[in-house]
Write a protein that binds this DNA or RNA. Sequence first.
DNA 1: CTCTGATAACTCGGTTGACGATATATAACG
DNA 2: CGTTATATATCGTCAACCGAGTTATCAGAG
Lengths: 107, 107
Amino acid sequence: MQEPTFLILTALAARPLHGYGIIQAVQTLSTGEVKMRPGTLYGALDRLTDQDLIAVEREEAVEGRLRRYYRLTDHGAAALSTEAARLRRRAETAETQLRGRAIPGLA
Amino acid sequence: MQEPTFLILTALAARPLHGYGIIQAVQTLSTGEVKMRPGTLYGALDRLTDQDLIAVEREEAVEGRLRRYYRLTDHGAAALSTEAARLRRRAETAETQLRGRAIPGLA
DNA sequence: CTCTGATAACTCGGTTGACGATATATAACG
DNA sequence: CGTTATATATCGTCAACCGAGTTATCAGAG
């Protein structure tokens, strides 16, 4: 799983959002680092829906404009949780290695 | 930066290694999770060398077989450190969101 | 003596997924 | 009336990962 995908799932973890809301949430959650483009978002949304990690919650028409809300599925929440733990482990391993001290027992 | 690339840099952080040694180190460092393929490794090695994140340390001929050792450059160590911090932040943000509590002040 | 498996390097083609650019439409602001 | 913000969507490209295959040496099993 790559960063943009991870951030979409993160954005949807707390509450359902529509596409444009995800773009804004991702920017906020990444403290301005990541500005997701529509080309990345809508492709990922279709893919994640196919993988049953997210699902369409509801569709709203606000002032003539459609808003399609997505929510994280249970499956998606589990995947995000697993992936977060993985990132944490990767970060820890890298920092340990950088300190120049290999974990005892490793070649 | 993607996971395989990150793991190559992690493997080289503590000490220089040759290609095959990296494959083994990655597998150990990821507690068996990631078995890097040659196609991934050698492509990444060329790319990372071009980006000056790693460099060829020396070439050794051991029993007729060539061993090409790569080391992390200062630039590469800095990039790995930055990326590790980034992964840590991503993991933390995701876990916070999963707890259902948005960071106060966010929409 | 041959075959398998580990070590060690490298190539090639396919697929996935992110990205930039572009398109469309409405409402608000100046 | 033009620009900015909201909101969705498509298209073509490119980077990167991945599996499979190639070549070669040496050790150990059969």
